[in-house]
Design a protein around this nucleic acid. Structure first.
Lengths: 223, 223, 223, 223
DNA sequence: GATGAATGAGTTTTCATTCAT
DNA sequence: AATGAATGAAAACTCATTCAT
């Protein structure tokens, strides 16, 4: 259930009902096509799957970039909501909240396609803002978990983001169900490695500044 | 240092020195291009990066498939060698060997491109054989580790493969060094979750049959 | 000040005030766009410049042809009025009247766009009638000038038309003011060559029949 | 007979014979098409007329701009050669040389298409250099003519350029022969206005700086 | 063995035109 | 009367592949 409603009051007039439906169909088709064929998927193919004319697609999204951008934003919105939910339940056990969050993302993989697979693909302010908000939520979540003694001190929000991103990336050729099962097992093992441990400390993490440059990275490869 | 020499005595006459050099340059360029642009990268572009004419590329690799196939085989060869090494050192501590193996793969990420990123992209017998050999080595490795009490009973070779594959997939836009650092942290946390634990058991794993169908999956998406 | 009012009582009901304004804006935008982009300028673009929806343009002008036709007629109307004025002042010195006429056209270049630049672009009876009237006025003007001994015997109305047309064609990239200055100089030198002279006679002129076929030429190129 | 041979030793290797033939055919087809349909003429159409595949056209000329550029340069080369010839014969009567030059251009109209019709369409250094050389030749020619007492003092090279440009611009819809006849008459009358005269002096001419900005004008309209 | 060249088959993008609101 | 929306058709541009040198 990706958010495809009209962008929140962004100066633009609300779309006519049929146009809004077309727009949503285009986004859904694009998500599927990008997942299956990469972000270089032919736009006519996307239009065909959406049941609209290619020119209609172009009317809504002036270029491939714009289409990708919307999917990224929709995906990040889903992640942010999940992070908010996790944060709300954190006082009752942050580690469980984290697990819930990561498993939720794994289950929603199909929707998240680009933000997690393709990584940040735009410097669009809206997308960047969402990313920073998500990072902030994860930091809070980890802080709570650490206070509860549930998570090792050297784990960072970046580690959670990495794990979420990796686990959501489709392992190609694997049917959705099996991919989900594998991803879930992977997340579970990872989480079992997260509590405080006598194990050697982790190697140094990239800093927040690095993360930011990561989030803001300029250009996206075509796939 | 990916293996780019002529495949061992496969009936084909040895290449002339300049031809061999061209072949190696083409493979190197293809690896880079596939990583950056996906496996749909224009062959023109690959030839250009390799500094040869497109027709020369075609002489060496009759189609995109053949180019991909060689890269996959080269990659699996690297993985198999690493698995062999890990197995040899396993008696002295299998968990450390596993860690060594996974971190080695992370460090060799650039070379492994297709086998791990793109997954199996061919039904080529040579590639399939390599994959099965790798799986067998990992099973042995896990068995040894279990015997040593170092690894939980419900972890499988598939989990290791998944982890290796995920950790090697490039997080786009992240500079190589930082990507490696993150991947290493991820592997380390995962490994800390691997020993026997009182935690809930893992959800069921896809079976070996599933794995095989995974390895043999018929057609590759363009990215 | 091009004439853009509704054509005089042609059976059509008078336009509503806002509709008339839209119509005028469309014509103005079309003149500019045709000048800058050629007569193949996108109708979208014209509508955009006029600040109306493309469908509104289509309501007023069923096709590109109709739009062009109106601009041509407006232009010829301007030329005819100028020729009438010239004829009225001819008894006081026809050469000066001719100069006045040509310079007037040069100054009105922006308005005349199509009739002079693109030539006759329609077989529309109204346009053809205007053209014939203009030719007749110029013949009269030349006859008067010849009677006054001010113009060589072998100059024809066609020469005047040619000169007017050429001088009005925009030399691309030249700012309007400089283009006008150059055109004025050109007309002035040309006029200095117009009086009776001992110079060799001019080569034969295309006949009136040729001119007619010129005026009536069937199809317009896209630019 | 436009110059279509390989560009003078411009670093590029000489074209293969068949490629050179294709290149020449493309340029010839483009000249015709641009004349008939404007510079927005479909490139498909040009390729079709040239008897080559559209991709072949793209191989030689990466975009429409490049095609236009070459035609402009070829055209200016013709003009420069004619100006050189005129200069060589100037001592025997510069006015006759000027007439010869202008009439030559009129006769070569078909070849000159873009430089004179569309004006300078590029800031390409080669094209600009040619334009400046042409202007210099015309200055010399006028200086000689003035010394001979054959041309009024206030006529400038810019006037000659204007006249050449105007006379060469096709009056649309007029068959080539008649257009040439009219153009020739026009040039002849203009030339009869060129000798010293008691007539009022001409209005001020745009300066050389203006001319230069004219020649260098950045962007070309699509027609 | 290598390359310049050409091409057919896409894919992307634009535009004239119609329709429903 | 005006507009948002949709579309079919065309034009621009790219790319895999083959051929002749």
């Amino acid at each position: 259930m990706p958010p495809t409603g009209p962008p929140p009051a962004a100066g633009r007039p609300r779309l006519r009902a049929d146009a809004a439906r077309n727009r949503a169909q285009i986004l859904a088709a694009a998500r599927t096509a990008f997942r299956e064929l990469g972000t270089a998927a032919p736009l006519d193919e996307i239009a065909r799957r959406a049941g609209v004319n290619i020119a209609t697609l172009y009317r809504r999204f002036p270029d491939r970039e714009a289409l990708i951008r919307q999917i990224v934003i929709d995906g990040f919105t889903v992640v942010l909501q999940a992070a908010d939910t996790a944060l709300a339940t954190a006082p009752d056990g942050a580690l469980a909240s984290i697990e819930e969050l990561l498993l939720h993302l794994v289950r929603e993989r199909e929707t998240l396609v680009l933000p997690l697979i393709g990584g940040p693909v735009t410097e669009d302010p809206e997308a960047v803002a969402l990313q920073l908000q998500i990072a902030a939520r994860l930091e809070d979540l980890l802080a709570t978990a650490r206070d509860q003694g549930a998570v090792r001190a050297d784990a960072t929000a970046v580690d959670l983001i990495t794990t979420g991103a990796l686990a959501c990336r489709p392992l190609p050729y694997l049917p959705a169900e099996q991919a989900a099962a594998l991803a879930e097992r992977h997340v579970r093992i990872f989480l079992d490695g997260l509590p405080p441990t006598k194990a050697r400390p982790l190697p140094p993490s990239p800093t927040n500044a690095d993360l930011t440059s990561y989030w803001k990275a300029a250009k996206q490869p075509e796939s």
